[in-house]
Nucleic acid binder design. Structure first.
Lengths: 168, 168
DNA sequence: TTCAAACCCTTGGATGTCCTAGTATATTGC
DNA sequence: GCAATATACTAGGACATCCAAGGGTTTGAA
């Protein structure tokens, strides 16, 4: 995975699709494959930036979410819904963040089924520092032009709405 | 993860970024987060379509790659390079595909270090059928307009080239 | 009021990805 | 020709994601 390939493998795949009679879906296939690959590249950059903090992207996302909650606490099911991941993924992330002392679980005051995730002081500090690094090292140098960012937000926003992510 | 949220969580995150003094990178952050989420949605659809074949996307990609190789065989390192995944991921996929009887490992005729992955007859059949299902059930109904597909291919192609995926 | 249905979180299992060795084979350079 | 370096694959481990199931808590309908 070091040296650039001489040719774009996704472009090749698209041509193969066309050559085998799937010309009508070759372009969407290529676009979707490109999304998969782009996600992989971006995730690697993000995880690299977070590594010094002992954080993964999944854990960082949870920390960031909590840091924006007024009280610094959220029910696990709410975190699961907002992060759009399976509840067990939140359980997993909270286990590790709790072990690292960045969050604590506490019982919900009125609903015995619910567990609140609460940011610790250190958790809030780490969240702030990690955000700064992520912003300066990854998001500010994404490689996307401003107009491309706008297009991505628009196109993927429509897609996510269609997919049932949100109704707004 | 069933009911749509009343508001777009990524839009909310973008506003939170702006509110906390990161307005200059809020948009790229939102675009990148949207890519992550879109990948997650698409992957779920793809895996759903492949499930009846006992395939995952990773295994399917390898099968498809082999099916486009003239001889129906490729060295593992070449597959790793073309799929842009770590060699151990290919080892993993080949293990399972071999167990399922869809590919076989064979020694490289001249290089003792290299292992060739070869499509079996059944592997070729499954690849063809899975491709048809994927094309008709996922790629042909991606939810992206034609113009959006073009923009995605262009924007993400530039990005991948910048990231060092290919030099073409 | 009571009890079934709904909801919340966790455990256990299957997969995928990456990284870090470790073994075997090729290539290179002296 | 032989030793040092480079390549190719695999084993083992850390994490993340999802699904299926189980146990506790609430809700709501009879």
């Amino acid at each position: 995975m070091g040296t650039p390939l001489p040719r774009d493998p996704i472009g090749d795949a698209q041509r193969n699709w066309e050559r085998h009679g799937w010309g009508d879906v070759a372009a969407p296939m290529a676009a979707i494959t490109a999304i998969m690959r782009t996600q992989q590249i971006l995730l690697a950059r993000i995880e690299g930036a977070l590594k010094p903090f002992g954080l993964t992207f999944a854990r960082y996302e949870l920390l960031a979410l909590l840091s924006f909650a007024r009280s610094g606490a959220l029910p696990m099911n709410k975190a699961s819904a907002l992060l759009q991941v399976h509840p067990t993924s939140v359980t997993n992330a909270v286990d590790r963040l709790e072990k690292a002392g960045l969050v604590v679980r506490s019982p919900h005051p009125t609903d015995g089924r619910t567990t609140l995730i609460e940011l610790t002081t250190e958790g809030r500090t780490i969240a702030k520092r990690a955000t700064a690094v992520l912003n300066t090292e990854v998001f500010s140098r994404s490689g996307f032009a401003d107009s491309e960012v706008d297009q991505l937000i628009r196109i993927l926003g429509n897609f996510r709405r269609q997919a049932g992510d949100f109704s707004g």
